[in-house]
Simulated assay, not measured.
Amino acid sequence: MITIGFRRDTGEWVCKERKGLYRFGNGQLAFAASLPDLTFAVRTKGRRVGPLVGILVSESSIPALLSRKKRWLETVIRSIHADGGIAIVSAATSIGEKTVSGYVFVPSLERFVEALTPLPDVVYNRIKSWKEEQTEPFQTAVARLAAHNIPLVNRSFFRKSDVYDALRTDRRLWPYLLPTALVDKVDDVRAWLDQYGCIYVKQDNGSRGSGLFRLTALPGAAVVCESPRSQKRLESLDELAPLVQSCRYIVQAAADADTWNGCRYDLRVLAHWQHDRYTITGIGVRLARTQSVTTHVFHGGTVLPYTEVKERIDEQELEQLIALSGKRLSERFGFVGEFSADIGVSRERQLYIYEINAKPMVFDEPEIEMHRLRRLNQLFAELAHLAP
């Protein structure tokens, strides 16, 4: 480890080492006889220091970050610093041709300060909406990073239909995929319900159970329609026509889900890239309320210790499923680096992929989050060629 400093007046990063220049991100440290007041302890490997990790956030997130309300993000940043790296947080508009203008957390001051750094070794994308990723500033930032071969972790949000199409390209994944398709009119939904009797309808860009409902056919044309917050009987599916046409929806056949004490459960699997493959970082379990549509805690689901269902899960098979899925996702979306998967378990112990999510939310299990921080640091170091 060596100590480097940042000169606020000139925007220069310096060190006192006379043995030669150190690479810092896509730039170099300058020599200084003395260090300025803002200093950081960083690890070295060869003639490199860091890694310098860029964290890309929405412009609207910056005020919350500076007022210390982005606690999870701050935890990630502190972990990067504790491991000998430096994080520079910025919006897409602040990524220039050769530099990044943003904010670094100074442990000695316990606050963020404005800073300028060279382009980083790796960038962690935490932009909060799919729509923002379609904007010109974001696309320009991505192009600038690509021009310098800078890895981008979590390149983009996933559409459910795109995930399904990506996974379908691998025959080995077919047994784990529930029949899924895009729909744009209520007659498409009717055809699926006639075929399967019970189906889920989901917004293609939805998350945390938003825009989700379950349809169960009744004798005649009537249907039971259940959402996370309500349940009602529809005399005809035509009542759903305005909703289905309002945005992109997919339909998915319902699985014969396994239960724990009479309630459905599924697995929340967190995965990261490590040593040329995707491996499991942690496994959580979410338990639905009786007859509930979703297991999401946001909609009333509860956290169940994994030990309660561990014996029902073939973990070797699950590891293989995650490795194959991650490989196909990176082929489709560009390098992913981190994702979470909602995995169903049938009564016959068959595993099913319900959804795969980019930019995983915070897990309720502290041990999973601790392991996540370690894996992120390993990932950043590996991508920056600083891993031991």
Rank of each mutant, 00 (worst) to 15 (best):
A143P: 04
P151Y: 00
R126M: 08
D276N: 14
R43Y: 02
A288G: 11
E235Q: 12
Y354M: 01
R159T: 15
S330T: 09
P388G: 14
A241G: 04
R172C: 02
R328F: 03
S34K: 10
I368V: 10
W130K: 13
L167Y: 04
S227A: 11
D314Q: 07
V269K: 03
Y22I: 02
L215K: 11
G54D: 02
Q291S: 14
V42P: 01
R277N: 14
T169Q: 13
V104C: 10
V49I: 12
V251M: 03
A217G: 05
I283W: 02
E226M: 10
Q320D: 15
V336Y: 00
E74V: 09
V153D: 01
L65K: 08
T259F: 05
E331W: 07
L304A: 04
S101D: 14
F157G: 06
L351D: 07
V123S: 00
L218N: 09
G220H: 12
G206V: 05
A222H: 04
D194A: 11
D276Y: 05
T117C: 00
R286Q: 14
A92P: 03
V224Y: 12
L237F: 04
N26Y: 05
E239F: 11
F213T: 07
E133R: 10
S161E: 03
V89E: 00
R372Q: 09
K202C: 03
V14D: 06
V153C: 02
F298K: 15
S246D: 03
T294H: 06
K359E: 05
A146T: 02
T281I: 07
A33Y: 12
K359L: 05
A254I: 03
Y249H: 15
Q134Y: 08
P219F: 03
A387S: 14
V122L: 04
L73K: 00
S90D: 05
Y354Q: 03
D165K: 14
T10P: 04
P305S: 12
C225D: 06
F105T: 00
P175W: 09
D266Q: 12
P360V: 05
P228K: 07
H299M: 05
T290G: 01
L237V: 08
Q195T: 12
D276G: 03
K185C: 15
S346V: 06
E315D: 14
Y196A: 07
L234G: 10
F335R: 06
P120T: 01
R328S: 11
Y22F: 14
R312G: 11
L267M: 12
V104D: 01
P107Y: 09
A221T: 15
E226D: 15
V186L: 00
F6A: 01
R286P: 10
E367C: 06
K160H: 13
A191W: 09
R111C: 11
V142A: 07
Q231K: 14
A387M: 06
L376T: 06
A82Q: 15
L240H: 07
L66G: 13
W192C: 07
E136F: 11
M370S: 12
I2N: 06
N205H: 10
R372D: 09
E367A: 08
E114K: 15
E367V: 08
T117Y: 00
T135C: 08
Q28E: 14
E355D: 15
T302R: 13
A222N: 06
V76G: 08
A384P: 03
S61C: 02
P51A: 01
L29Y: 01
L65N: 04
A82F: 10
S227W: 07
I2S: 00
Y249Q: 11
Y249K: 08
G96T: 10
